[in-house]
Each structure stands twice: as C-alpha cells, then as structure tokens.
Computed example of a mutant assay.
Amino acid sequence: MKWALAIAAVLAAPALGLRTSARVERSASELPADGSASMSFHVQPRSLLGLSAPLLPSTRASLSLTPSLARASCGAGAHGPVCTVVAGTTPGEVRGTLRVEDALGLVAETPVELRLRADDSDTDQDGFPDAVELDSEDDRQAFRRWFVTLAAAQYPTPDPHWPEVHRDCAGLLRFAYKEALKAHGAGWRKGRELHTASAPDVRKYHYPAVPVLGDKLFRVAAGAYDARGPLEPAFSASASARWLLSANAVRIPSGQALPGDLLFFEDPEARGMSYHSMVYLGDLDGIGPEVVYHTGPDSRPGGSKGIVKRLRLEDLLSHPDEKWRPRDDNPHFVGFYRWKILD
C-alpha cells in the first residue's frame, strides 16, 4: 500500500505542480581554514508558483568540490536535503556544483563558491593559533594514543627515522609529537611494528601540512600569537626542554595526568641541560603507570650519547637520586604538563 501511494505521488507530481525547481540556502559564504569549521546548504523544492513544495520520494542532493580544500557530505534534513561542508586547513577558493535529484530526474543544479580564509586567531591567548589546537575529543584521543605508542616504542632501540643529532630528552618529545600528527598510511607503517595498527589518525590536519605553522610546530617565544609578525623566530621546527615546558605545555595537577602528558625536572647543576623531560605513558601493559625518557648525552669528554629508559612510575618515585622523584615536595620536580594543542 505504501509503495502504491509513493508511486502515485510521483506520477501525479507533474500534473499537480508539486515541484519544478529547488531553492538552495547557505549558512555562510566563507569559513576559517581551521580543519573543523563547517557550513551547510539547505535544499527546499519549489512549486510552479514559487511556494514550498512537498518532497517527492527519493529526493537527494550531491555536492562536488574542487580543489579538495574542504570535504562535503549530503543527507536528509527535516525539510529537505542538506549538504555540509567542513573546511580543510589550506586557505583558498573552492568551487563546485550542487545537484538535486528525485525520482523524476534533475530538480536543480546550482554552482557553489566558498572561500577558506587563513585562521590565525588565538582566542585563548596561549601562543598557538586556534587552528592548530585539536578541538575534538576524537582527535585528542588519537593524538594521545599515537604519541604514547611512538614514545614508548623508542625503548630499547630508537627508530632510525629519529635523527641521532636530536636524541635527547626533548628530542624524544619532539619526535613522537611530529610523528603522532602524521598520516599513518602503508608507506609510513612499512618497517614499523607498533601496537596502534588500527588506531585512527588525527583528522584535523596532518604534519607537515599544519595550519599556519607548517613544519614549525614548536613555540620558542613567550606571549600570545601575533598574526601580524613573522612566524619565525616565535616558532621553530625544534625546541629545547625549557621551551617545551614554558611555551608549548601547561601545568596540570599531578593527580590528573593522562597518557601522553609530560613530566619536567630542573637540575641547575647540569651543564647546558638544566631541564629534563619525560613522557607519562599510563598503564600500557597492565603493570602500572610507566614513564619513558632519554637520558641525554653525557657532556663530559668521552661521555656516552645517552639511552632511552622506560620504567614504572612507582620505581621512579623511589629513584636512588631524590631529585628525579616526581613528588610535589621535591624542589627539582617542576610538575606534570599537558601539550597546549590538547588543552
């Protein structure tokens, strides 16, 4: 019975003038190229008299865009088809065609233009453009999982993709950070055995195509981000443990640490490396919370290049040298920190 009524409606539609075209309403004409901003096209079929018309069965819309600076999807809305466009992270002009069809054929074909503008705002004044921050929980969790897995995987044998010149405590953080933000396709995975074979990637952007910053991920200056000034020297492809601590992360209470957060220590007596960093792994293997870190090179003549160590947090709390114990009453322990792009 229902099928019969639907068929009857389709056959009767031309005679009744239920629809001859469609009006397309858009919610915006431009978007910030921040990887998450969105706008929508709402399609409303029109009658011969220009009035709203009831939908015919199988009314649908499709939207194609070029170049691929944004992604589009279409579906059914409460009053007609709706197409949603989500901005990518590259500014530019996007053009395309929105097609509306139903069981009788083409209803409308509308050209689409959309401008993606560079998003260099820093609304929370944390020194990073908003476009760089991971503002969805899915992306934050994806980053944490990759960052933790990559950091832990450097023990006991570092990845050959981690340049030896960057192998120190801060270098471990930087390497895992950059690699966690990459697209982990077959080419990236080749030769790597990791526990995240099915882990989703961060969706908002992929290194080195990072909005505003490109490959200069790390802030090496104090203060808020100033879009009027040059990117350098405020950002760099590298950063010391001191700058990672002071400009790239925010302190959190020790009891709120999550996998992927950081620990920092200060040793004023150390030559040229007074700050030391570690990665909090959480409980990866069911043996309790762990940390991983690079010891850093020995600056003394003939000293070693240093190694990666991974140990339980419980063992670190009883470290023979008290200055490496992550306790709030330890004057050498600076605290637990969280990457600003996650905060």
Rank of each mutant, 00 (worst) to 15 (best):
R144C: 10
Y337H: 06
Q44H: 14
G214I: 08
G229H: 05
Y177A: 03
Y205V: 15
K340Y: 04
G288E: 06
A15R: 12
P32E: 12
A61N: 03
P208Q: 11
Y155E: 13
A183W: 12
G303S: 02
M1D: 01
E137N: 11
L69F: 05
E133K: 14
A108R: 13
P32H: 15
E25A: 09
A8H: 05
R312K: 13
A153G: 11
P331D: 05
V107Y: 07
T89P: 13
P259V: 08
A33S: 14
R46A: 05
L181Y: 00
H206A: 14
L245E: 08
L63A: 06
D261L: 11
P160C: 12
A103H: 04
P160K: 08
A37P: 15
T89A: 13
G105E: 06
L258Q: 12
P301Q: 06
G223Q: 06
D201W: 13
S36G: 15
A176S: 04
G260Y: 02
L18H: 01
L317W: 03
G187F: 00
A209C: 10
T90N: 08
E137Q: 15
S64L: 12
D120I: 10
G272R: 02
V212G: 07
L217I: 11
S62N: 06
D130E: 06
V210F: 04
V24E: 02
A234E: 12
G272M: 10
G187W: 04
L284Q: 11
S47L: 12
S238C: 07
R325D: 00
L342Q: 05
R242A: 08
